[in-house]
Simulated scan of single mutants.
Amino acid sequence: MFIETPRLRLRPWEERDIAPFAAANADPEVRRYYFPDILTLQETAAMVADCDAHLRRRGFGFVAVERKVDGALIGGLGLSHAGDEIPGGPHVEIGWILARPYWRQGYALEAASACLRHAWSALGLTEIIGYTSRINEPSRALMEKLGMRADPAEDFDDVTVPEGNPLRPHVLYRIKSIDRR
């Protein structure tokens, strides 16, 4: 999966991406809405390997996001098959993790919009979901900017997060290809 936007390249992961992505995943503010919170270098490398395997198997995946102007890895973004913890599956989900220096510059919206266009035109997908903890206002706002909509009847508790943890209650967003026309 290779997608270009005016400012970004979405591309398969390379070995050189692991260290900067691990730095992002070690930042408590970046990982504020994730469980588990921060990841080690080894955990990030394993995540990247899993993403690569998904990309090879499925033809799409969670890929590296590189800024064109200087080649900086700004994070990861893409499509993947959602886990069994998401009710009503199987689903293809969109997700993102950007390093803090690249927040609030429109990169996530630019990359995610291009990824959705790719899902509709190149992959022929008809629906994409997104989900996040109820308290993750930044990601929820991005999903809404993308045209994704939530139905409170589909809210769920993420069973991979311990009971009582404020990250357990989740909101499910959906967008269909016809919503984008």
Rank of each mutant, 00 (worst) to 15 (best):
L109E: 09
G71Q: 07
D157S: 08
A53M: 08
W120P: 03
P166A: 11
M47T: 13
E85G: 00
E137I: 05
C115L: 08
L172M: 07
I38Y: 08
P36S: 15
I178W: 10
P12Q: 12
A19E: 15
S80G: 13
L125Y: 06
K176I: 00
P169S: 10
A111H: 01
D179A: 01
A150I: 00
P169M: 08
G164H: 03
R181Y: 04
H118C: 08
A141S: 15
F21G: 01
A22R: 12
G130H: 04
A82M: 04
L79M: 09
H91M: 06
A26Y: 07
P101E: 14
E29S: 04
K145M: 14
G83P: 04
G71L: 05
E110L: 02
P169F: 06
G71W: 04
C115S: 12
G78D: 06
G95T: 01
P12K: 12
R57F: 06
Y34N: 15
G75E: 05
L73E: 10
P169E: 11
R9D: 12
G76W: 02
E43S: 15
V48S: 12
R9C: 14
A53R: 14
E29Y: 04
R140H: 11
E93A: 09
E144A: 13
G89I: 00
D70S: 12
R100W: 10
H54E: 11
T44P: 07
R134S: 08
G130R: 04
T44M: 07
V63I: 06
R117S: 06
K145T: 14
I128P: 06
V65T: 13
R174T: 02
A23V: 07
L73Q: 11
P166I: 05
W103T: 08
P20M: 12
R134A: 11
F156E: 14
A45Q: 15
P12S: 13
T44V: 05
E110M: 02
I38C: 15
S139F: 08
D158W: 01
T44D: 10
R117N: 06
L8A: 10
A111Y: 00
L116C: 13
E127I: 01
H81M: 11
L77W: 00
A150M: 00
H118D: 09
R31L: 07
F35K: 07
G59S: 14
D37G: 10
D52F: 02
G76F: 02
F2Q: 14
M143W: 04
L116A: 10
G88Q: 10
P87L: 01
A26N: 11
P152Q: 13
L10C: 11
C51V: 03
I86Y: 04
L123C: 02
D84H: 11
P169D: 11
M143I: 04
D155H: 14
E14F: 02
C115H: 03
R31T: 13
R67L: 14
G78N: 06
I178Y: 09
Y107Q: 08
A150K: 00
T126V: 03
P138F: 05
I18N: 06
R104K: 13
W120C: 04
A26L: 07
R104T: 07
D37W: 05
G59L: 12
E29L: 10
L116S: 10
L146H: 09
R180F: 00
G61Y: 07
F21Y: 08
I178H: 12
E85K: 00
